[in-house]
Design a protein around this nucleic acid. Structure first.
Lengths: 125, 125
DNA sequence: CCGTATCCTGATGGATACTG
DNA sequence: CAGTATCCATCAGGATACGG
């Protein structure tokens, strides 16, 4: 378990959860792994615009906190597969809930330059 | 809505949720407010070892993201009361779920200096 | 292919002192 | 009481180059 997580225990369980899941990309990584085992490269493409360094670090942190499982195959070229532990599966559900929450309560900002479609009313009498 | 949140929309809803709730103390603040309206000072004591500056900033962010409601009373001495919006109430539920998750899956680290109780087995044959 | 090493930047968060 | 201003340390995260 990481030091950051250990320190959060002194405060409250919610902060522990934030310490584990709070970093950028982390819950997205977990939600992608909830769909199935991914290799490193596939995961990077699935998650979005995340750098390899950051993805690797977040995966290490998640592994150390018991959320993801890492299996390296001794092959050439190398193949490393990531999946969820039981704790990870449960955490993924919370991630899904958070995604639903933001979709429900935070209106997507209109992209700049996109005008609302004209309808009959806007054409006047 | 804050710029950080706006950018997260380009990735996925989960990252939006992280952008809103991911900061240190934020979910703890929300969970405390779920127990009822708090004044600034009371909230600071309830949350834990958070500095006034950080608490004020997190509250501003949460207000801007539509999670908390801030009501300032024109009195001397000043009185400011914080409470949750409907979105905040829902977010608090996710915070509770995260707290339960960490309590269930992350074993509390033993405080340094505490030794496991000796039992018969440890005394050897 | 799967990372790590290095360097860099900006954001976060605490301490302290101060204001309305 | 409820913050804000300033300074500061730390760290998260990206870019690039390189190693196994």
């Amino acid at each position: 378990m990481r030091e950051q997580v250990r320190r959060a225990f002194a405060v409250c369980p919610i902060e522990v959860g934030i310490a584990v899941a709070g970093g950028d990309w982390k819950l997205t990584i977990v939600s992608k792994l909830a769909e199935g085992t991914h290799r490193f490269g596939a995961l990077q493409r699935a998650v979005g615009p995340v750098s390899a360094k950051t993805l690797a670090r977040q995966l290490q942190a998640l592994e150390e906190d018991g959320v993801v499982l890492r299996v390296a195959h001794a092959e050439v070229p190398p193949r490393v597969e990531y999946s969820l532990t039981e704790a990870g599966v449960e955490l993924a559900k919370i991630g899904e809930a958070l995604g639903r929450w933001s979709a429900a309560y935070l209106p997507e900002p209109e992209p700049v330059g996109v005008l609302p479609a004209a309808d009959d009313a806007s054409l006047g009498a």
